[in-house]
Design a protein around this nucleic acid. Structure first.
Lengths: 317, 317
DNA sequence: TTGAAAGCGCTAACAA
DNA sequence: TTGTTAGCGCTTTCAA
């Protein structure tokens, strides 16, 4: 009886037990498809991963899967084309037929307005991760980037650094600007000025590490007095580290290097890297919880704390 | 009309066009749940990812998602507990109700016999990735590890290396033994002997890089004449690289280092690493294709070629 | 080649 | 509190 499975309140204890016994005996298993059809709820949450190797998206999916399981949902994963994220079209043709109860939209899809329109038209709820555009349009989950960057600035400042370099991330990621601006603000708050920070957009070179390598060279040519470089992500920072090694710069004595972490990515790095660690798994969990529990028209910001992990590359440990 | 959507052969062209026009006009969208219920086919493929950050599992899921999309299926992802992979239980309680048409089982789940039993009992097809036990029980996808390792051995041999160290992977991964044995065989084939290869199981130290660092130290103490180290994966190799740097060993002059790659993981490494690159995305694609296209009782091996990527750490480039 | 109708296994609404 | 029943939107089968 459906009332037992769905934990309906008005069922006598004895009846519940009796039914549960039968369920256990017969090995009965709910059929999700039938339930979906009848209840017009799919118990499915959808998310996207990029079409290149990336811990960021996989950690996001992992957190989402974990939360789905805890809430009785299942996670459907689709790949999107990072070069050409016309996700709306993609959604129309495939994901739409699954009738997901909700979608998790990581950057840059969270800023694909056509996709948001399509979702709203279909009455599909969505939560965005670190959106850049129109952040109050839906529930949105943010990492408290500025906070972490400011902790990092303080750490570097205390180590004696006064001139900083920044390697920005992709321009379609809101956090590229956020993190750069946060560093400038933090340096100013510590007694420095905006001119102590030299920011450079990344000079793409195929992979993030290669890009970090190349951009570090340019940055140090433009502003030779820089003694610390902060990058948009850890992979860029690895390239900076490589540049330092190959050019006789001792780390962290001549050059301190810090990155920004997409969850446990920094544990892949060796030697270890100072990083602002973003709780991406947790962000995904929060996103799924909001999808399932919030009222359909909720519009709130969820801020997740980041964590400064100090390692050898800036004189820690 | 369902016959048009499902491309049934006996539909007159004019009718087909007429129906298609209506579909386009009304914005009709197939309801997967209804179809699943009626056809007792879910058009869902399930897979597992580990509960820690790992490119291996995420690349697998990505490949699976890609193939699913191409074949009109959707990918459902579940997280499993790497420490305690009682996946059978997990399956019973959650995934089972989705009535997946097929499952992709990466290691170590591919060797969870209770899970395989449960799947067979429910008539759920599955494809295993690199299984260790009972490889002919189902369709299984393998990377041609031995082939890659033998190419690597030849490369190292040609660079003049004669004494080799191996850092094994987890013992519940079939490939740990395969890769070690392949290196020994390859060295013998090149004119060396088994005693030229010193294999060590990894001395776990929290993360793979830290483990590589620690194990490299032990290995070089046990067999100081080693001039090349080959590790189970790239993350271990990064630790070996770190050990070399910190102990004044020049790479690749004093010590050559090579790893084994789970797809594009080596692009995360800097400086870049020689690696045997496993086409994990492709393996997942092949797995999904087998799930969808093979007869239900097929039992074949699918071998995927690996690729030797030679980089600075062994004297390449 | 097409139309019509009987389910698939649930939920939800209505009776009892 | 519990039994009963009408769909949910498809596929499949049977007629036409």
């Amino acid at each position: 009886m459906s009332r037992v499975v769905n934990e309906h309140p008005s069922v006598r204890d004895t009846t519940r037990e009796r039914v549960k016994a039968v369920i256990a005996e017969t090995g009965f298993q709910l059929n999700l498809a039938a339930r979906s059809l009848a209840a017009s709820q799919s118990y499915l949450i959808g998310t996207f991963v990029a079409d290149t190797a990336s811990l960021y998206y996989s950690e996001l999916a992992r957190g989402a899967a974990r939360a789905c399981r805890a809430l009785g949902y299942h996670l459907v994963t689709e790949e999107f084309d990072q070069r050409n994220p016309v996700a709306a079209d993609h959604y129309e043709r495939t994901l739409r037929q699954t009738r997901c109860d909700g979608m998790i939209l990581p950057p840059p899809l969270c800023d694909d307005l056509a996709l948001l329109d399509a979702l709203e038209r279909d009455g599909v709820r969505y939560v965005r991760i670190s959106p850049m555009l129109d952040p109050d349009r839906s529930v949105a989950v943010f990492a408290h980037d500025a906070d972490g960057v400011s902790q990092l600035a303080r750490h570097l400042w205390e180590k004696g650094h006064r001139r900083f370099g920044v390697i920005n991330g992709p321009s379609n990621f809101a956090s590229s600007a956020t993190r750069r601006d946060a560093l400038i603000a933090a340096v100013c708050a510590l007694g420095g000025s905006a001119s102590d920070v030299t920011a450079s957009k990344m000079l793409w070179d195929g992979t993030f590490p290669a890009t970090g390598y190349r951009t570090a060279g340019q940055l140090l040519k433009d502003a030779p007095d820089i003694s610390a470089i902060f990058t948009f992500n850890d992979e860029l920072a690895l390239g900076v580290l490589g540049y330092a090694h190959e050019n006789g710069l001792r780390v962290p004595k001549d050059l301190a290097v810090a990155g920004f972490d997409d969850s446990d990515a920094s544990s892949f790095a060796w030697p270890s890297l100072t990083t602002v660690s973003q709780p991406i798994v947790d962000m995904a969990v929060r996103a799924v919880q909001a999808l399932v529990r919030d009222s359909p028209h909720a519009r709130r910001r969820i801020e997740c704390p980041v964590r400064l992990v100090i390692r050898a590359s800036t004189g820690g440990e």
